[in-house]
Amino acid sequence: MSIDPSSIPSFGAPQPQGGQPGGAPAGPPPVIVPDQNLVAQLLDQMQLKHVVDEEGDLTAPWEGFRVYYMFRGEQKELFAVRAFYDRAFPLEKKGEILDLVDEWNRETLWPKVYTHTHEDGVVRLIGESQMIIGAGVNLEYFVTTTANWTQASVGFEQWMVERLGLQDEIENEEGDGAAEEGDES
């Protein structure tokens, strides 16, 4: 399926009011079955870097996490935006992290965040939002929702940094990296 990039709304910019001459409504909005190409066009419009990973999923990397745009199910009827956050927590901190995740999940609509404990005892966070698309979905709704889910995934990372007081730690790591690069002369 090919969607003309000009048909994807420009976020923040006023949209011309469509319709037929005389002010009559243009009819029902278009219903489409989204695919990876549409999501790639949307990410391009949002000016987000993205790649296709080894498993064929579209991925947008950020510093500290990655957001995956995945189509699942026998007929690709489920669309998911899943963020994998790189920050590792020791198993002893899992209770504290669960309390924070519960707070986020109570106060926000998406992404819903959960923990994943690896075999080595490291706890990481995953955020996820999903919609069923097999019967089709309004194009504008899909585009707006995908953009909002992406922004919310970024927002969660920022929220965690604030809640855990990690901003100084992150700035020190960035400063240490710059100092180390300068020491190589």
Rank of each mutant, 00 (worst) to 15 (best):
Q17E: 13
Q17S: 14
G18E: 13
G19V: 07
G19I: 08
Q20H: 09
Q20M: 13
G22H: 06
A24V: 05
A26N: 09
P30I: 03
P34Y: 01
N37V: 08
L38T: 00
V39C: 09
L43I: 05
L43A: 09
M46Q: 10
Q47M: 09
Q47T: 10
L48T: 01
K49I: 00
K49G: 02
D53P: 01
G56C: 06
T59A: 11
P61V: 01
R66H: 05
Y68L: 13
Y69G: 06
Y69Q: 07
M70Q: 15
R72M: 15
G73Q: 00
L78N: 14
A80Q: 15
V81R: 09
F84E: 14
Y85L: 04
Y85P: 01
D86N: 10
R87L: 09
R87K: 11
A88T: 05
P90Y: 11
L91Q: 15
L91T: 13
E92D: 14
E92F: 06
K93G: 02
K93M: 13
K94M: 12
K94D: 07
G95Y: 07
I97Q: 06
L98T: 04
D99P: 00
L100H: 04
D102V: 02
N105T: 08
R106V: 12
T108W: 13
T108V: 08
W110P: 02
P111T: 10
P111Q: 12
K112Y: 08
V113H: 02
T117A: 12
T117H: 07
E119A: 15
D120E: 06
R124L: 08
R124A: 04
I126C: 12
S129G: 14
Q130H: 13
